[in-house]
Every structure is written in C-alpha cells, then in structure tokens.
Design a protein around this nucleic acid. Structure first.
Length: 268
DNA sequence: ATGGTAGGTACCCTA
C-alpha cells in the first residue's frame, strides 16, 4: 500500500496539481493538510474522477482542514477535536489488511504552527501547539496498545533532529525546532513507541527536508529547508516498511505548495 | 535586526 501525506495549502487552488500527483504516483491513500475549505466546497468530483472513491474530510473556512482520500474502502472513520476546539486538525480511518489481523488505523494530523515568538507567556499560539502535542500524545497512549498497527502522518510543524533543519544552531529559537517542542514530540513518540518511518530510510547525519519557505528568492539555491512532515508507524508495522519517497521536485511545480508530498510503501 | 511570499478573505488573518 502506497501512502502519501502532503500539506497542500489550499486543495481548491491546487486540485490540478493533486490530480497530476495522483496520476503519476498512484498512491492508494493520500492524506492532506491545510485544505482550507468547508466540506461542501471540497472538490469531491475531481478526487473521485481520479479514482479515489473513499473520502473522509473535515474542513473549515480559510484555515486548517484535513482530508484522507483513498482507493481502499474504510471500515471506520473518525474526527477528533483537540484542545477543546473543532479546528479540523485530526481525522482518522481504518482499513482492512490481509497481513495484520486487526484493521490498520491511519491518522492524518495538522499540528498548529505556533506563531513566531517561542514563549508561551506572550504567545497563545505556541501554548496551543504544545498543548496539542501533549494531548494527542496522551490520547494515542490511552487509545492503543503498542502492538496495534497504527500509522500517523501529517504536518507536525516540528523538525526534531539536527539534520531536519538547514542550521540546527540558527533555528534553536525558531518555532519548529525549539528544544521544548522537540522534547514534547519526543515524549509523544515514546508514549506509543512510534517509529519515524522516514528516518528509518534516511541516515540521521543526512539532511532531510519536506518544506521550504515561500520567502526565499530561490528555495533550491539557499536550500533552507526543514523536515516538518512526518510518517510514523507503530512497531508491528516496521517489517511492512518497503520504501520511502520525498518529492523534493514538487517544490518546483507551477504554483507549488511550500510543502512537498512524502510517501511510504507498506506491505499490508 | 529585518523582511521577505503565499492563500483566503474581506480590507487582515495565518503560515
């Protein structure tokens, strides 16, 4: 099963790009973040025409919004409110698997970006981000045993490792790479024994990015990227991991998102 | 230390 995650930054604007991506790479399941549209305005017909008949979405006007588009049927779908808000940042589906006895759960997450100032005393958005990570980490721990096959993908808005950013030193006080966020994401990861599927394939000492700011003249030349988009799996799924792909060239598509699609192939 | 760009919406918010 080929699984993709992409912060698309407006699904309506980039539906043509999404279609090209689907046609070329044929993922079985696509998880999107920042769809930025109400459910009634989601381009359902175009997604179905591409062969994705099973659609689970939760969107709002202008901000956030997540979607799971699938060629495989769902046996269950859920929406999850986080930190007391219905702000469309976490949905999940379950799909049947021939290799695993239980259905495999797939979670699509859009962790709050957290604003600019890395101080919870003056920045409510940063407090919200930290609370979100704490809550979703506790929730996963209470919801599952470590031997349950679960996948969590999405824009986590945190680049945890030194080589997940272009300059570890210069980004220590920049939200997405501050020690407090990295620590909280690490705690969340430990609680269910999550494995970082991308770093399973990419050595720790190798730079690895999925996002490049729009604010650089030449994203490729400056290459000031960060690895904000992640695919995590629980331990039972490790033997199923076949390969990964980060579509770095997607940053050069016409009218690109600032994030590129990230994929894994799982033998389910 | 600063400002740079993009998307959605409604003249400003979020990233």
């Amino acid at each position: 099963m080929k699984l993709a995650t992409w912060n698309i930054n407006s699904v309506r604007l980039r539906m043509p790009l999404l279609r090209e991506f689907m046609d070329e790479h044929q993922p079985d399941i696509v998880c999107l973040q920042e769809t930025k549209t109400l459910d009634e305005s989601f381009p359902m017909k175009h997604v179905r025409a591409a062969g994705y008949e099973h659609i689970h979405i939760q969107g709002m006007k202008s901000y956030n919004g997540v979607a799971i588009l699938s060629r495989l049927p769902f046996v269950k779908t859920q929406r999850h409110d986080r930190v007391g808000r219905s702000d469309c940042r976490h949905i999940s589906v379950s799909v049947e698997s021939s290799k695993y006895k239980k259905p495999v759960d797939i979670h699509c997450l859009y962790v709050p970006a957290g604003g600019d100032e890395p101080d919870v005393a003056v920045n409510d958005k940063f407090a919200h981000k930290l609370d979100f990570v704490d809550e979703v980490g506790a929730w996963f721990e209470s919801e599952y045993d470590q031997d349950h096959p679960v996948v969590a993908v999405g824009d986590f808005n945190i680049a945890p490792r030194e080589h997940d950013v272009w300059s570890h030193k210069q980004l220590l006080k920049v939200i997405s790479h501050t020690p407090i966020e990295v620590e909280k994401l690490g705690r969340m990861q430990e609680r269910l024994g999550w494995q970082d599927a991308i770093r399973h394939f990419v050595p720790d000492e190798e730079k690895c990015y999925t996002w490049w700011s729009y604010r650089n003249r030449d994203w490729k030349k400056s290459n000031r990227g960060r690895r904000l988009d992640h695919i995590w799996v629980t331990k039972p799924l490790m033997p199923a991991l076949q390969s990964h792909e980060i579509l770095t060239h997607g940053r050069d598509w016409v009218k690109p998102s600032d994030h590129v699609p990230v994929m894994i192939d799982l033998d389910l």
